[in-house]
Amino acid sequence: MKVLVPIKRVIDYNVKARVKPDNTDVDLTNVKMAMNPFCEIAIEEAIRLKEAGNASEVIAVSIGDKACQEQLRTALALGADKAIHIQTDAKLESLHIAKLLAKLVEQQQPELVILGKQSIDSDNNQTGQMLAALTKRSQGTFASKVVVESGKVQVTREVDGGLQTVSLSLPAVVTTDLRLNEPRYASLPNIMKAKRKPLETIEASTLDVDLTPRVELIKVEEPSKRESGVIVESVSELVTKLKTEAKVIS
């Protein structure tokens, strides 16, 4: 079974995003970038499927400018067999990404696509579901457990109020939640080895997808700040203030 893992280069999750003074966007100049945490979980899950003998090949793919090859090399160092870089400098929406990935799915015919449920920059939570729709595949979103058996994949999903398990016919699309696994670190020998693994570049423009923007970014602002509060000295002072000042308890 071939597994395709789309990954995204994003701001490092420890870095606080700053808004540009002209309010046109978030300022990413000289900001540390990394693989989106949910994508790391997706890569890890694909590699585990391969190690368990359920997957034969793991292909990592990323869409963006040349810089995202850095994250593809990381994916290769973690254990992906090959990488595909879909090259574009355009600012893309989830729908565009899903359409480009659908073209790649058509070419590569992976039985399973595993990707992160959301990226920590745009926080959209759309791409996996859209890809499933465009490729007419089943979808198992927000997965905390993935079991592949006899032409099906059983996905346990993190839903409001509990866990839902669904059985999906392959081919399928799965999106990862936090508790699916704990990603490994790339070892130095594997980082060296990754430099020799195949990384293919495809120009997005050759995939025949309309990348015209559907959403216009008007402005980006800082969220309204909370006024700083007070440190209270004791539990009884806290309870008094909650009752008489904030009036949130009686």
Binding site: E93, S94, L95, A98, D123, N124, N125, Q126, T127, G128, Q129, M130, L131, A132, A133, L134, Q139, T141, F142, R157, E158, V159, D160, R214, V215
Partner: peptide, 23 residues
Amino acid sequence: ASTTGKNILPRVAALLDTSQISE
């Protein structure tokens, strides 16, 4: 934007060829 809405709506958006705006 519950887990139900987040699961279903992007699938709807893609089938209708529209870009979803989330949350």
